[in-house]
């Protein structure tokens, strides 16, 4: 079983993707999708990726809800910045932030969250010092920003991945 289906979640999502693309639940499409999903997962296993160990399903849902709410909120914030007049736009700046999170998958997810949220972008991670360079569009207070990211996202990601 383990050899046939090395990544069950990946295979299942590929099957769902296939059925959504075909927009049908015919038995032929399910079979074809299943074959493709299994083969693609085995091809993925040939890359020998590092297996992420995610725990605490509750924290994952909490993080997802938090991210959705934050994306909505910062959409409005950035939209109001765009509509401001020109000379008040000079608040953008770089922030260097220390991180305690070291897990690679966790860092990848944190990078995606921060970049996908309008108003902040992840630029560079320094693995020696464990710091990250972030660009913030509306930088009022550097400490508040570091605090928000550490308390809102990093704490949850630490629960999930470590």
């Amino acid at each position: 079983m383990r050899k046939l289906l090395p990544y069950p979640i990946l295979s299942l999502s590929l099957l769902v993707l296939w059925l959504l693309l075909q927009q049908s639940l015919a038995i032929g499409q399910i079979l074809l999708g299943a074959v493709i999903a299994v083969l693609a997962a085995r091809a993925f296993a040939a890359l020998e990726p590092q297996q992420p160990r995610a725990r605490k399903l509750g924290s994952i849902f909490k993080l997802a809800a938090l991210v959705i709410v934050d994306v909505m909120r910062s959409n409005l914030a950035v939209a109001s910045i765009v509509l401001r007049d020109r000379h008040r736009q000079q608040t953008a700046g770089f922030v260097v932030m220390p991180l305690t999170l070291r897990d690679r998958s966790g860092l990848a997810i944190l990078a995606c969250i921060i970049t996908a949220t309008p108003g902040s972008a992840w630029l560079e991670y320094d693995s020696v010092r464990g710091t990250v360079l972030i660009h913030v569009l509306d930088l009022v207070d550097e400490a508040t920003w570091v605090d928000t990211i550490k308390n809102r996202y990093e704490r949850l990601l630490l629960e999930i991945f470590q």
Binding site: V71, V78, V82, A92, A116
Partner: peptide, 15 residues
């Protein structure tokens, strides 16, 4: 500046 402009397209891709 370029780094400020990086934030702008995320409006279209999110909301």
């Amino acid at each position: 500046s370029f780094y400020a402009r990086v934030h702008a397209p995320t409006l279209g891709t999110s909301l």
